[in-house]
């Protein structure tokens, strides 16, 4: 694997390997402190995403490498009309690995096709964001110790939420998982996810609008926010944004070892009081994202013969 564009580019074996590396980094950070000495990561961000960029940059620094950061399309060559393909070729000359964030779907694929160094998709519009899924998966693994036999509730915007689709894709590859899809009618999981993934693989799932009713059966609760930018009109957004707000009270019937995840940033869909509950894992998830990005950078640079 030269680049990571979609989470399904990784086999389950490769995923296991990344999880193992991340776990080892967590246990022995010093061992990796010089692993990428002299190597440069370009963070090429054509749309702002401070958190994702910081995570990549922190990951590279902790591996002893350097970062060249390009943010804001307005100040970059894209504003002068340079194509993504040309940008990829140019940036390859200066760096050893590229993380790209772009508002257009498929931009990371075009970058990978044209770059001579490994490329990581740090989000291409509403399409894929595989390193978020890596963060989600490490969190599930560290909290549950397995990827199989889990009842996974996903809640909120299941229509536009790309992290949800990736998570369903990734977790559908393991045995014995069940999905509980919790959303307002208007934001249900698109039929192609149900048809091409869940039904095709015979994975049990239920769709509901009632979070509290299903709470007791969940092992994982993956909350998402309703994103303003996915709506064409403000009215719909305002009507749907408060559909699900997770409170301490709603957790009273939840399992004791439930793991609550959220890709962050949150708006108000998880009340701040929940943060003190030991089942809240979303800040650990942020940290796990950095460790998985470290593991991924290591893997890609190793495979490219750079380290």
């Amino acid at each position: 694997m030269k680049s990571l564009i979609d989470i399904l580019d990784l086999t389950t074996e490769e995923l296991d390997e990344l999880i193992a590396t991340a776990q080892d980094i967590i246990a022995n950070p010093a061992k990796y402190a010089e692993a990428c000495r002299g190597k440069k990561l370009a963070t090429l961000f054509f749309e702002p995403s401070t958190r994702t960029r910081m995570s990549f940059e922190a990951a590279m620094y902790e591996l002893g490498g350097n970062v060249i950061s390009v943010t804001g399309a307005a100040s970059s060559s894209a504003a002068k009309g340079e194509s993504v393909a040309d940008t990829a070729k140019t940036v390859s000359c200066y760096t050893d690995i590229i993380a790209i964030r772009h508002p257009k779907e498929g931009a990371a694929y075009v970058t990978a096709k044209n770059a001579s160094v490994p490329v990581i998709n740090a989000g291409d519009g509403g399409h894929c964001h595989p390193t978020q899924t890596l963060a989600d998966l490490l969190t599930i693994y560290r909290e549950k110790g397995r990827f199989s036999g889990l009842t996974i509730g996903v809640c909120g915007d299941l229509k536009f939420g790309r992290t949800v689709h990736s998570l369903i894709n990734a977790m559908s590859r393991y045995e014995g998982n069940k999905f509980v899809l919790i959303s307002p009618e208007e934001l249900k999981v698109p039929s192609y996810v149900k048809k091409d993934v869940l039904q095709q693989k015979n994975i049990p799932y239920v769709q509901t609008t009632d979070l509290e009713a299903v709470m007791p059966e969940l092992d994982i609760l993956y909350m998402t926010r309703v994103q303003r930018e996915r709506f064409f009109n403000e009215e719909d957004y305002l009507r749907l944004k408060d559909s699900y707000i997770l409170t301490v009270d709603k957790l009273k019937n939840a399992k004791r070892d439930l793991a609550i995840l959220h890709p962050l940033p949150r708006v108000n869909e998880i009340s701040v009081a929940v943060d003190d509950d030991p089942r809240a894992c979303y800040f650990k998830q942020v940290l796990n994202g950095k460790y998985m990005r470290m593991a991924l950078i290591l893997k890609l640079l190793r495979e490219a013969g750079q380290i």
Binding site: S83, A85, H102, K104, E105, A107, Y109, V110, G125, G126
Partner: peptide
């Protein structure tokens, strides 16, 4: 036909 697709803004692809 996806308006958010990279092909919608990069003509040479």
């Amino acid at each position: 036909r996806n308006p958010r697709c990279i092909t919608s803004c990069e003509q040479e692809l």
